[in-house]
Amino acid sequence: MVAAEIPQQAQRGTLADFRRGLIATAPLVPGVVMFGLLYGVMARQVGLSPWEALAMSLIVHAGSAQFTALGMWASAGTWAIVLTTLAINLRHLLMGASIAPYLLGLRQRWRALLALWMADESYAVSITAYRQGTGSAAYFLGANVGIYLAWPTSGLMGALVGMALPDPTRYGLDLVFPLAFLGLLMAFIEDRKTAAVAVVAGLLAIAGSQMLSGQWHILIAGLLASLGGIALEEVERAWGRR
């Protein structure tokens, strides 16, 4: 980032900014709600009560990490789930680093609150506003609240719907999980290197699942294959230099 872009003092903003932030998330809410419904149905499938599903959405508030945790819920231990959550959420470090300069001068407890609520969607809306010069802490807060209202409520609704269906496999609802993950996975395949990493991770995980108990093969295959991505970049660079 160019030094001149970094503001000296954070913009606190006004109630009007809060409202603008809240409204800015509106186009993203239908996507969040669909995802939340899906999450709720899946949470029921792995045996969470609607209240447990709601509690997870309220205090974890991280869609892809929650989905991943549900995928491992029955067979993995607590540590495997927590470490996988950490790994899935590592991208938030980059998001935090990019938005942190705009939060300079805010009280630490406000910065912690904004971080606590920073969802992918509210980050995207807020960093765009900051870059355009219209961002502020109030705007960021409004965007966070907008997403935070949509995610847990839709998750609870999904869990209640899931409970009303006596035999979900009859309606093919057990397919929701693999289908949703296929879509998520494909969204991350941007080029040949990411595709190669996906293939290697899949093969390592299949081999690992035969050898390791619990769900550690997911974490180990994920770490090895992602490091392989960097190795591929290095190979490509060395190849280009010849």
Partner: peptide, 9 residues
């Protein structure tokens, strides 16, 4: 590469 590797695994 982390998300794509974890999801594939």
């Amino acid at each position: 590469y982390v998300p794509v590797a974890l999801l594939a695994a």
